[in-house]
Amino acid sequence: MEFDVEVDAKNQSCPMPVLLTAKAAKAMEAGQIMYLEATDGGARSDIPAWVTQTGNELVESSEDGGVLKFYIRKK
């Protein structure tokens, strides 16, 4: 999947994945896609929770060798 912004939150603990995601999203335009990688297990539920709370869209999520990958569309 193509994306406009990449966020690397690997090896960062709660709350950093959410904070980095929010910071990056702030600078994005509506419709743009963010690709996010995180290794904090809490991000598995935290990122979808943040997406729902902020009214954005989780396009796709997957897990690969301990790395959580998310594609988020800014609304």
Binding site: C14, P15, V18, L19, A22, D46, W50, T54
Partner: peptide
């Protein structure tokens, strides 16, 4: 942690 996360959530 809760303050920063809540702020990040708008």
């Amino acid at each position: 942690i809760l303050s920063s996360t809540a702020a990040a959530t708008g």
